[in-house]
Structures are given as C-alpha cells and as structure tokens.
Amino acid sequence: MTDLRSLAVQSILYQNDVEEIIRAARATSNAATYARENGFLSDWWLMLGDSSPSQLLDAVALDTIRGLVEESGGQFSYEFFDRNRGHGGGHNKLAQGGSTDLLLFLNPDGIVAPDTLAALMQTVRDDVGVADARQLPMEHPKNFLAKTGDTSWASGACAMTQRAAFDLVSGFDTETFFMYCDDVDYSWRLRLHGYRVVFEPGARLFHDKRLTTSADWQPGEAEVYYSAEAAVLLAYKYSRSDLATEILEAFRTSGDEAQWRAANEFANRRRLGTLPTQLDENHDIGAFVAGNYAVHRY
C-alpha cells in the first residue's frame, strides 16, 4: 500500500488519572505501530493538552509517554493550557499550526484496539470528512447505514478527521459549545460543506462507562448542565428556534437546577447578543429526534 498519511492524535486532559493516561498512550502507540506496519501511517504525533488547574504530568510520566510514542516511530508533545479550554477549545489549540493529513480526537483515557487507527484511516478519505469509532462496552445507539457507515454525527470520544476539512470549517465552535455537542455541530458543519460523516464499526474504542445494577446510566452534574446548555444552543444554531423555545420552557419547569441554569445561560446570551449565527435554514442536516441528534437504533 502506498497511501501513507500523517496523523496527529490529540487528547485533552482534565484531572485524569495519570496511570490511565499512560495506559491510553500505550494502546495508541501500539495502534500506530500496527498502522505503520500495515501501510497506512507515515509520521505521527501524540499531542496532549492539559486543561487541569495544575500540570497533571510530571517529568517521569512525560518520559514514559515519550518513550512509548518514540518507540512506535512517533513524536510527543505536551502543552499545559493553564486554564480549562473545554473539549473543542483544547483540540483547536493543539491543532493550530499543525500540518498532518489527519487529526484524531481521542478521549485521554480511551483505549484503542490495535487496528483502530488503521480502520479509521481506511475510512477517512475522499468525501468522508470525519469518522468515529465504535465504543465499548456501551455502544452509542445512533443509527448508521450498514453498507457505508453513513451517520448523522461522529462522537468526539474517538473521531478522525481530514485536516483539510477541519481547516475548512475552522475546527470546533468554541464560542458556542464547551463540553457537549461540539462534535455534533462539527459533523453537521462538515455535512453542510458536502462531506460525509461515517461510523466505522471496525474501529474500536474502550470508553470506561459504567452502569448501575439496573443497567441505567447516571450522568454527573457537569454532564447534565453542559449537555442541557448545548442542547438548546444546538437547536437554535440549526435554525430550530421553535425547538429551542420548547426546550427552554421544559428546562424552566423541570425543577432541575442544572436545566434551570442552562435556560438562564441561554437568556443571558440572547441579551448579550452572543448567540451563534443560524445555519441550515432548510433543515437539511440538523436532526432532532426525540431529544437525540440522530435516529437511534434503540
């Protein structure tokens, strides 16, 4: 195979367990070795951006990770941001000035399988702007076409994108989104530019989610707040003011403190005139289905 391409794997740290970060780096380096040996990957970088209040990685941890990456033919960089830039903000910062063919947004504690990078690299080409991996043990329920993998949006937990596509849409919208839905928005803006968004089931990511004994997912407080805030902003941005109004009304009457705060934040932005520019006025791309951003399989 002659289609060698370069790749920057980017992860944003925020008070993660250092051992988990090293374990993730070990898995990523192994996957890079596989992709190099199988003719997909040329040069590669592992880039960590640290949004924690204080520097998370000491010299020993940095040396360990650098050793793993260099052994797999890659280069390593670590940047302490000295402030919490959020998910998209951190990725935008790391991507600044880079020149690799591809970028991979990866959760800092996400464990990839040996062939994950290769599988994504095989998929992200031509008109595919971004592709995401299948998450284990809890697979995301968004629907995808069996033969092509086409789907509504790609999850930023493990998503590979073409550098050209990233630059075309100026990366993530950090003015609007902090932690959630920035990946949905990124996917939809790529689709507005004619790119396809694809789910690659043959690429795997272990994302350490855990369920209660009754198989329920209990979101943390930050997840409830930021996903609520993002939900109404996304509806507004994709020209669904009707839906945004509906969501705001539901938040205000829900009795949930996080949702009430999210409604207030939206009102503040409206007052300050900082709401995003509206897109997709014909509703060609944005999918709002029963509180989700795609048709779900279950």
Partner: peptide, 26 residues
Amino acid sequence: SATQRVRPEVWPHDELGFRTLSNPHA
C-alpha cells in the same frame, strides 16, 4: 450481568460484523 440483543451484519469493509439492537437490560 445484563443482556443485549445483536444480529450479524456485514460491515462497510466486508467484515463479518454485527449490529447492536438494544440497550443493556438487567
């Protein structure tokens, strides 16, 4: 332990894969 329904399906690169059909059920 929970259960989850799946069915065989060919994936985009012709792998003999599967499709997950349900949430985990305790």
